[in-house]
Design a protein around this nucleic acid. Structure first.
Lengths: 332, 332
DNA sequence: CTGAAAGCGCTTACAG
DNA sequence: CTGAAAGCGCTTACAG
């Protein structure tokens, strides 16, 4: 920057002003400075910049699983919103590893980002507290914070389970099963509650079985599907609510393609999330849609509010409603 | 940090040494310092740190399309390799927008990352030159650099096309078509060359038709599939090489599910990339696999070599070989 | 509108 | 092994 100033025949402060407050500099001078910058190939040192100014216009987003298109949708939404405000979105993937998640939170913290977005798969109260203790803003995605300790954007996951189960009941299924794993993941717990509520609402004419899968992936679905396929047909549920699409696809594969149990005729299946994989499966999956893009947008909006409002800020939790998307695996 | 030093009763430099060169400090002192850090909730300011040291241990990865699981695989590979060396991987998604790509390259440049990984969808010579002019290292993924201007990890995309076409020819198909779009995307051009080479190799007994799609997505595939479905059966190719899996899935959907043209009996289809979607489609897709994870690992390795070797560094291009994965859409 | 000066919070030789 | 001092490259009042 010194060199630029010398080349343009102005002082250091003027170069800085051209970069940060162009209005304070006469157009002619600014032009000369800009030419010098271009000629010397000058790149402003962001470290010095944020050290001196105490700020940094990028915002960090920490994601538990970029493999899941729900998270990718959140990224898209957040990025659109960030772009509108002129800030840059930096991404970090933890692959569901809490150690890595903490490391990334600390990294963004140390680099003094404007704020953070966190979409975790487990309780992250400690990490959030650490970040917030340093005065840095953070908004939680798809996971409720501990008693109002920060802003959050949630989906009504109880409603996710409820919509899925109600659809099956309304289309005449009476022996439901809920297949899930990872009750330490809050959305799973909530979806379970919703399923139970829908069954209860139906009175005694609908029964619910709860089946534990080994995990949430397609491979876990294969296992669960094999388990179901070993049953006599009359002992099979006639409607399945499966806690994730991947898991549902795995089950359908085993049931329908391998074991020859017809989906949806003999067993109807509803997934949760409405992932990118849902529509293109062997039997297109009926699923309850999570509005990922909107979640990302809302989260960015909350974060920006918090950054701007400062002391006056009040934490808020936005709860978005899910929607049923009907496809072949559980038709109307 | 000043406060920490005071609390621990040592000087500033000692605190710094505890953080950066623990061996230089006596265990007892180090312990006292660490306690002070914990008590005060001190977070080292990364801006000051990298300003003073001139370095920054994170590396930036700029991706054209996080929607595509090939890119996600590259992330996984790069992250594993980064973790092994103790550096952090920061991600940025450009959504195929060259303006955004340039902005992110500049952002990482300004923040003085150790180095960058770039997986673009278009020629990025200008951006690469800009970054390199500032002395920052960058490795290209899945796109050949202009005449040895940087390190790169490529897949032999000609071989991708070749393997796809040869598989169809070997399984008895004689009227092939290559469906593609975006010849400005280098891998597309190379795959086309490979398909032509395989057809030529077969002599006169195999003919090749080249079909232009509107784009590379599933929706574009639907369009292309509709176009094919309108043809009389005897005018239909009996083997399709489709330049991406998504495009292939779209075509299969229209042909097989909508129009009732049987895949693979009447038309066999081979995709390129072997995306996450390939295996779970209505007709599981035979596809040529791109080794994304390995690409990411190799790219990190090249980058680290370059960072460490400094002046002595020679650019290198690693070309990985693809592999055919046979599924139902074009069986053996 | 412009320039000189202080300071952001660290790291790194260097002397003890 | 420890401490005092210089310097990293900017931004921001402040005086002109």
């Amino acid at each position: 920057m010194q060199d630029v100033a010398a080349a343009a025949g102005v002082s250091l402060g003027t170069v800085s002003n051209v970069l940060n407050h162009p209005a304070k500099v006469s157009p002619a001078t600014a032009q000369r400075v800009r030419e010098a910058i271009a000629q010397l190939g000058f790149v402003r040192n962001d470290a010095a910049r944020s050290l001196a100014s105490g700020s940094n216009s990028s915002i960090g987003m920490v994601l538990a699983d970029i493999e899941n298109s729900l998270f990718i949708d959140m990224v898209h939404g957040a990025q659109e919103a960030a772009r509108a405000t002129g800030s840059k979105l930096l991404l970090a993937n933890t692959a569901c590893d809490m150690t890595l998640q903490d490391e990334y939170l600390d990294l963004f913290d140390e680099s003094r980002v404007t704020g953070m977005l966190l979409a975790p798969m487990q309780d992250s109260t400690a990490g959030i507290a650490r970040v917030r203790a340093h005065g840095r803003q953070i908004v939680l995605l798809n996971f409720a914070p501990k008693r109002g300790t920060c802003c959050a954007v949630l989906v009504n996951n109880e409603q996710v389970g409820y919509l899925a189960a109600r659809h099956l009941i309304e289309t005449g299924r009476t022996r439901l099963a809920f297949v899930a794993a990872h009750d330490d993941y809050q959305p799973v717990r909530d979806r379970r509650l919703g399923v139970r509520a829908a069954v209860e609402e139906a009175g005694g004419r609908v029964v619910l079985e709860e089946i534990a899968a080994a995990g949430l992936t397609t491979a876990d679905g294969h296992l669960a599907g094999q388990g179901l396929a070993r049953r006599a047909l009359e002992e099979l549920p006639d409607g399945l609510v499966v806690v994730t699409d991947e898991l549902a696809n795995g089950i359908i594969h085993e049931l329908h393609t391998v074991a020859g149990v017809r989906v949806p005729e003999q067993v109807a299946v509803v997934g949760c999330e409405n992932n990118r994989t849902a529509g293109s499966a062997a039997v297109p999956l009926t699923a309850v849609d999570m509005p990922g893009r909107m979640m990302g947008q809302e989260a960015m909006r909350l974060l920006m509010d918090e950054v701007e409002a400062g002391e006056r800020h009040r934490h808020a939790t936005v709860v978005l409603e899910p929607e049923l998307v009907v496809r072949a695996s559980a038709p109307n």
